[in-house]
């Protein structure tokens, strides 16, 4: 299947990219930092480690998704390797989706590496495996899938710098729409409230944040999981459809 050929090649390119190893290295350093931070705190050492560790994995994952995602698509256009791909019997949408799948696989592998290291560190520290963290890990990955889709969308028509800026903005705004909505309610301005309500409903990356629940042992309900998965997959599909539509029309210089 052509899609998988593109995905496999993207994965191979991603895995051989030096920037990925640099970022994973920094992620490992951050996770180690969580270990030392845990040592310093009084009473809730493991919780601090979990909190900082999960944040580190999520944050570095987002950076990898943005930089590797944008970099790989941009390189195709800038170096014009795409010329020899689009001139083969494949649809442009297959290229976009194949590229996306390859990037997701790359992210999965790097996330797995960070995750295993983190779990091992927690085990060394506390003497047991903390399986309850798994849903948070899965949701971090789901969020990275959405961020990667955004990175692909912006790279399909913009420069790498602007694409990185836009994607990062969506990430930051996506994590603050709940707070923005709460602040907006206080203005009592109907337009502002409606606007922020819509933004809050459609762009809310907090759907993927299970860190508080898993770290503090709060229940993670099936409906919460289902909502998050449904939201994530719908977002990915919508963003990819939009990317394909834009990509279909564009001229390659």
């Amino acid at each position: 299947m052509t899609l998988l050929v593109i995905a496999h090649n993207t994965f191979r390119e991603g895995i051989r990219a030096k920037v990925l190893y640099n970022l994973v290295f920094f992620a490992v350093l951050l996770i180690l930092f969580s270990y030392f931070l845990g040592q310093l705190s009084i009473g809730a050492n493991v919780k601090v480690m979990m909190d900082v560790g999960l944040f580190s994995i999520s944050f570095m994952g987002v950076l990898i998704a943005i930089f590797v995602g944008i970099g790989l698509v941009y390189k195709e256009l800038e170096k014009r390797t795409i010329f020899t791909i689009v001139s083969k019997p494949i649809h442009r949408s297959q290229f976009i989706v194949g590229k996306y799948l390859g990037l997701c696989l790359t992210l999965f592998v790097q996330l797995l590496v960070m995750w295993l290291f983190f779990m091992l560190l927690l085990y060394v520290y506390s003497g047991k495996f903390h399986w309850q963290l798994t849903p948070a890990g899965l949701f971090i990955y789901l969020e990275l899938m959405v961020i990667t889709a955004f990175a692909i969308l912006f790279s399909s028509f913009s420069t790498p710098f602007l694409s990185a800026l836009f994607t990062l903005s969506f990430y930051l705004v996506g994590h603050t729409t709940t707070e923005l909505f709460e602040v907006g309610k206080k203005t009592e301005n109907v337009i502002v409230i409606n606007l922020l309500d819509t933004l809050h409903r459609f762009l809310n990356l907090d759907h993927f944040n299970l860190m508080t629940e898993v770290v503090h042992g709060l229940p993670v309900t099936a409906s919460r999981m289902a909502n998050g998965i449904a939201y994530g997959l719908s977002a990915v599909i919508l963003i990819l459809i939009l990317s394909c539509l834009i990509f279909q029309k564009r001229d390659f210089k």
């Binding site: 191979r12 390119e13 390797t81 010329f83 020899t84 083969k88 494949i90």
Partner: peptide, 17 residues
């Protein structure tokens, strides 16, 4: 395109391959 072969000008390819 199944029956076309194409070489662009000054081609760049996947260097890691």
């Amino acid at each position: 395109k199944a029956d076309i072969g194409f070489l662009p000008e000054n081609p760049y390819f996947y260097e890691y391959l």
